[in-house]
Nucleic acid binder design. Structure first.
Lengths: 200, 200
DNA sequence: GGAATTGGAGAACGTTCGTTTCCAAATATG
DNA sequence: CATATTTGGAAACGAACGTTCTCCAATTCC
């Protein structure tokens, strides 16, 4: 597989990832069903023909956008966590990452994972599996960071890492819901400041 | 306004609240957009004519179902809280009320408030106002119960009642999201058992 | 009893949806 | 240059949507 060779035929005139980034915005703030192909076409700057040559159907566009969203967000989150000095600081940075996303414009735009859980997960196995994996991943990450903190002495050993990780996950997902109707920045941060007390 | 006098014309042959209870189930598990009038007709046992004589349009059905949902749930919640022996016990009962609803069948069915926040609140002022009021009410209730516990000695006075109430609200809303993809009963209760530790 | 009003049932409405089709443009291969 | 293959663009498709209309039965008011 030579990366420089191009497949035959007219080359694609747009970047898939750029188009998906636009689709993410539409799907996030409108939801799956309310986001019409017309809206997606306009936002992505594509015609129906191009869209359906790049993606099988509407659900394929959505799932591709979901995967792109997860990829981008995970990269940002990992970068943020990497800057933490110990386990406790890393947990705090992870909480802050969600609080930052849960207010203002991005708060109103919403989280694609939460939206998928609410709108699609019950009746769509592919969507449910993606949501489940995302939640499990976040919970496992919280769990790992808490144990790391307990090992380096920044988090008390008396707490149950697993149960506390699940609580942190609940808090972050809840913040995403509350962010839809716009609690301000201070209120979101007051929540995570309270949650962090569980690590004492 | 005499309650015994009937308006002229043929009387309605179904109970509005019974029909709304069926609509609540459909709207909860399908969401607003995915719930078609056909589905609602079948679930409510009505024809299109009857439906549109009782409600202006689809959104009116939804808002009526939302209001009915809130009324029923609030009554159940108040009953549960009323059985609490002190502030701390009341907070625990309120958390348990949400944990109970966030797993199994009712967990998969989902919360109409959360669904409305995700699907409609951003673009619909009426929906947003209802969601906002519901969240504010829950937060105020947590706040009141925490202060009550601080007054009766069952909750430590060192915590910030307002901030802790907001955290509890985030936890409950988060549980509702997680319940969509089905964490089991034990996991939901482990979360509230952890949250309750903040009251020590 | 007759007029007026409402509910129930189902057909029919126009619109919008997601999707497909068709043709010209662009590029690879031989 | 010729051919195969793919994309871009616009029009067109059938299906499903929310809603309205029509007709008749049921009920109340006068």
């Amino acid at each position: 597989m030579d990366a420089t060779t191009r497949p035959p035929g007219r080359p694609r005139q747009f970047e898939i990832d750029d188009a998906l980034d636009k689709a993410i915005v539409v799907f996030s703030e409108r939801g799956y069903y309310a986001a019409s192909i017309s809206e997606l076409k306009e936002a992505m700057g594509l015609t129906a023909g191009s869209l359906y040559k790049a993606f099988k159907d509407k659900k394929a566009i959505f799932l591709a956008a979901f995967d792109r969203y997860k990829q981008v967000r995970n990269a940002l989150l990992n970068q943020e966590i990497g800057a933490g000095c110990d386990g406790r600081d890393k947990v705090f940075r992870m909480l802050r990452f969600y609080a930052e996303a849960s207010h203002g414009e991005s708060g109103r735009r919403g989280c694609l994972v939460v939206g998928t859980a609410i709108e699609l997960a019950v009746y769509d196995a592919e969507a449910a599996e993606r949501v489940g994996r995302s939640m499990a991943r976040s919970e496992a990450l919280f769990d790992r960071l808490i144990r790391e903190g307990q090992a380096d002495g920044s988090i008390t050993k008396t707490i149950d890492a697993g149960a506390t990780a699940r609580l942190m996950l609940s808090v972050t997902q809840g913040l995403r819901v509350l962010g839809k109707t716009g609690p301000d920045r201070d209120r979101a941060f007051a929540v995570i400041d309270t949650a962090i007390k569980l690590l004492d």
